[in-house]
C-alpha cells in the first residue's frame, strides 16, 4: 500500500514532516547542487534579523561527543535581502513549505522583521526565534520567561497574517509554562527545541574552544531532552508542535511524532551528512511498513 507521509501545519500542507532546521541548511539554495530540494516537506531558513550581521568571532564551532557547539551568532544578510533575494531564489526551485526564521533584539525589531516576512509571497510560515543563546542581551532574555515570550508573541501576532510558530529555548525550568503563554498570546504553533547552552575547553591551550566561550549545543546527544519537551508541550497545548533536537534518522522522526510533533526538524545532523534529510524521506515509508503505519499523521501524539 502507498504510504501517506503528508502532514498539515496550520493549514500548510507538507508532503512529509521532514524539515531542515534553521541555521543548518543556509537559505536552501546552497544544498541544491547535491539534492532535489523538493523531496523535503519544508525548509526553515537561516535566522534573520533587521540588519545584516556578521555574527561572532572565530572559531565558532566545537565538536562534542554525539554533538557540537556553535556560536555563529546569527550571521545573516538582513530581512530585506531575505525577502527580496533569498526567498525568491529558493522559490524558483522549491515547492515545499518555506519557513522564515526571525530573530530580534527588541520588540520593534521582531515586529518589523515578522511583518516583512509575512508579507513576502514565498513565505508560508513565520518562525520566531526567542531562544538563540548566542547573542548577548538578545533572544535569550525573551525566551526564558513566560511573560516576555508572550510579549514577543502578541507583538508579532498583530503584524503576521501567516501561521506563526514560536521557537523555544530548552534552557528553562518549565517549558510548558512558556509554551502555554505563547499559545495564549496567539501563536499558531511551537517549535522546540533550540540549542542547549554548552561549553568546551581546550585543555592544552587552557582556553574555551570557541571564541565566544559558550554556545549552542546540538546534535544526537540532546535528542532525549528535546523529545521529553515535545512530549510535555504537545500534551499541554492545543496548537501543533514542530519537534527539533538531535533527530538523525527516520526512527527519530517517528519517535518525535509519537511524542506529539506534527512536523520534525533535522538540525546539526545536516552538518555531518548533508544528505540526511533526503535519506530520511526515502527511509520513512519502509520504516512505516515495518511498524504497520499507513498514514504518518495518525501517529502524532499517540504516546
Amino acid at each position: 500500500m502507498v504510504k501517506d507521509l503528508s502532514v498539515n501545519l496550520c493549514g500548510v500542507q507538507l508532503r512529509n514532516p521532514v524539515v531542515p532546521a534553521s541555521g543548518t541548511f543556509g537559505f536552501g539554495v546552497e544544498l541544491s547542487d547535491i539534492m532535489d530540494l523538493n523531496v523535503l516537506g519544508g525548509i526553515s531558513l537561516k535566522g534573520t534579523t533587521r540588519e545584516a550581521r556578521y555574527g561572532n568571532p572565530l572559531p565558532r564551532i566545537a565538536e562534542c561527543t554525539a554533538g557540537m557547539i556553535n556560536s555563529v551568532g546569527l550571521q545573516n544578510p538582513g530581512i530585506d535581502v531575505l525577502v527580496g533575494e533569498k526567498v525568491p531564489a529558493l522559490r524558483k526551485i522549491f515547492g515545499g513549505a518555506v519557513i522564515a526564521n526571525i530573530s530580534g533584539f527588541s520588540l520593534e525589531e521582531y515586529t518589523e522583521c515578522c511583518s516583512k516576512a509575512a508579507a513576502c509571497d514565498g513565505v508560508d510560515i513565520v518562525e520566531v526565534n526567542v531562544s538563540c543563546p548566542n547573542v548577548h542581551n538578545g533572544g535569550m532574555a525573551f525566551g526564558t520567561q513566560a511573560s516576555s515570550a508572550a510579549g514577543v508573541t502578541s507583538a508579532v501576532r498583530k503584524v503576521c497574517n501567516k501561521p506563526l510558530f514560536i521557537k523555544l529555548s530548552p534552557n528553562v525550568t518549565d517549558i510548558v509554562e512558556i509554551a502555554r503563554a505563547c499559545e495564549d498570546a496567539g501563536a499558531d504553533g511551537i517549535t522546540l527545541v533550540n540549542t542547549m547552552l554548552g561549553m568546551r575547553i581546550d585543555i592544552r591551550r587552557r582556553q574555551p574552544v570557541i571564541a565566544n566561550r559558550m554556545g549552542g549545543f546540538s546534535g544526537r546527544a540532546i535528542f532525549p531532552v528535546a523529545l521529553r519537551m515535545v512530549y510535555q508541550v504537545a500534551h499541554a497545548c492545543r496548537i501543533p508542535v514542530m519537534g527539533c533536537g538531535g533527530v538523525a534518522d527516520a526512527e527519530g522522526v517517528v519517535e518525535m511524532m509519537m511524542a506529539g510533533a506534527t512536523a520534525v526538524q533535522v538540525g546539526a545532523e545536516n552538518l555531518r551528512n548533508p544528505m540526511v534529510c533526503p535519506e530520511i524521506v526515502e527511509r520513512l515509508p519502509h520504516l512505516m511498513d515495518e511498524l504497520g503505519i499507513d498514514t504518518l499523521k495518525s501517529i502524532i501524539g499517540t504516546v
Binding site: L58, R60, P274
Partner: peptide, 8 residues
C-alpha cells in the same frame, strides 16, 4: 560546504 556559516 557553505551552509552553516560556522567558518565565516
Amino acid at each position: 560546504a557553505g551552509f552553516c556559516y560556522g567558518c565565516s
